[in-house]
Nucleic acid binder design. Structure first.
Length: 174
DNA sequence: GCCAACGTTGGC
DNA sequence: GCCAACGTTGGC
């Protein structure tokens, strides 16, 4: 058997790597926050939308690529990439009344909300703004640009993954 | 700060 | 199960 040369985490059942876009308000949690974490890794808590929850719980897998997007910020942009390092597990911040995203419906026995762990892969040399995304044939179709697009966890196609890296002038590491 | 789009809640 | 009212998101 030849040695694997990539450092990519293997996905379950040889499932191909999927790609996602995670939104975060930069004031609340920016890519610099992630870069400053121990092991540059964090748990992605606070998602309180069922469609996004389903993706975190069922579809997002270790080794998957994540675009880090700053919403409600200046600039509005994809600012870098991360990789998923832990698959969906219960979001414990829903259990704690002290937490902003506390939800009494969710319990340890029957958790409503889920999160994954992600680790920083790269910060782009320059933020890839919505304007830049609109100018490119491939990326202009991304969900994040769609009118009224509020989903905080969004699927990204492999073509979009490549195209954003091309705009950024960065070689995809995933 | 405005407001359109969206998701959730709750009365019926 | 419908749908109006409401709260939130998030671009502009």
């Amino acid at each position: 058997m030849p040695k694997k040369t990539t450092n990519r985490k293997k996905s379950p059942a040889n499932r191909p790597v999927h790609f996602w876009l995670f939104k975060s308000e930069a004031d609340c949690y920016s890519i610099n926050h992630l870069a400053g974490e121990r092991k540059q890794t964090t748990f992605w808590d606070g998602v309180r939308n069922y469609q996004a929850r389903n993706m975190l719980r069922d579809e997002v897998q270790p080794g998957d690529g994540v675009f880090f997007y700053h919403s409600n910020s200046d600039p509005l942009a994809i600012v870098g990439t991360a990789q998923v390092v832990k698959a969906g597990y219960p979001d414990h911040t829903a259990f704690d009344p002290q937490e902003k995203h506390f939800d009494p419906k969710s319990s340890t026995e029957n958790p409503t909300w889920y999160m994954v762990d992600i680790q920083l892969v790269s910060q782009f040399p320059e933020p890839i703004t919505r304007e830049m995304l609109r100018e490119d044939q491939v990326t202009s179709g991304m969900m994040v640009l769609a009118r009224g697009s509020r989903l905080s966890i969004q699927p990204v196609t492999p073509e979009e993954w490549k195209a954003v890296h091309k705009i950024a002038g960065v070689k995809p590491q995933l």
